[in-house]
Nucleic acid binder design. Sequence first.
RNA 1: UGGGGCGUCGCCAAGCGGUAAGGCACCGGAUUUUGAUUCCGGCAUCCGCAGGUUCGAAUCCUGCCGCCCCAG
Length: 359
Amino acid sequence: MRPFLSVEGLVGKTVAIAMSGGVDSSVAAALLLEQGYHVIGVTMRLWSGCSGAASSNPDVVAQAGHVAAQLNIPFHAFELREDFRHRVVDPFCREYLAGRTPNPCVVCNKYLKFGRLLELAGRLGADYLATGHYAAITRSGAYWQVQKAVDRNKDQSYFLFALNQQQLEKCLFPLGRLTKQAVRAIAAKQNLVVAEKSESQDICFIPDGDYAGFLQTQCRIDAAGGDIVHVSGRVLGRHPGAYHYTVGQRKGLGIGWTEPLYVVAIDAPKRQVIVGERQWLDRRDLTVAGCSWNIPTPMQAFACNCRIRYRHTEVPVMVEPLGSDRAEVTFADPQQGVTPGQAAVFYQQDRVIGGGWIE
RNA sequence: UGGGGCGUCGCCAAGCGGUAAGGCACCGGAUUUUGAUUCCGGCAUCCGCAGGUUCGAAUCCUGCCGCCCCAG
């Protein structure tokens, strides 16, 4: 186990804390100080809020710097807009164009936060990079693994599945053993300026939640509409662009039917959104690609639990490796809302052992 | 222009003389570091139109309008 509260092990250790100006990362910073680490505040400038909507959002860098000043720790902001655009935003747009539903947070964690930022923090002399994620890190044999947070309601282990051993060995998650309530209490007790901030929002680079508008203006996505087609083949309506939809979605179809209709599939080339009654969402299995493992790379089928989206309660599955990079996942019971582009994350007890991207 | 059926919220649909169910859609809110889902709340003073019968009609009668089907 990594030293957590034993001061002896911490002497001289430097931790960079990724600060967002929010409650969680601010409290994490305060806790690290309390635990005796030498703490450096760092943050990333990822997206210029130049478009109208985003500019109304408080400046993350300024907020983070404000908190760092209050805690009296050094603070560094890194210019990472280029990397963010190429590693996160562009792929995000490409996924939507392909009729898939991306999860930019996972990608950002792997390449920006625990990629570029971790690297830059190391240059500042940091031994670890800490974040305000609700997750824990643990050692299992020769492997570092992400562990679910004690506050199961806030658990963010799902977003961290893609981190490799080199990244995990540098991680600290000071909030993993705390509840959100406790974190807020600490923020209040320390009089942190962010104590009363509300919970976070949508995709960080689309603060107003209008991701369709974002795709149109920032990614110049082709806004051509198409048919909404029932699984029976009957055309039920028109849509303004398939990228407005995601598999499993119910709201926004605008179709009066005898039952609720859900998006069952998206056929990007044909510009069709396929809809059907709820039972059409049931899937017995799925295939994941781009797998990463925090266990010895599996060579044969094994049982574990799986989450197919954030906040999904994991369900029992059989995982059958298809080479080292892909795998076939079979559910014990059919699941609804298997969405291409989302991550399937594998758990063993409360630990993340790997995951991949749903094809 | 012979016969039969039907017209209730944007869609589907209960009601059959006692003063407009429900589902879908939509809107609002809760939940949420992805997109969703889910949950809670709202949503026809009015039943194709016009008359009539009745204490009282969406429900009965008459006429008109509009659909659909079967016939030649």
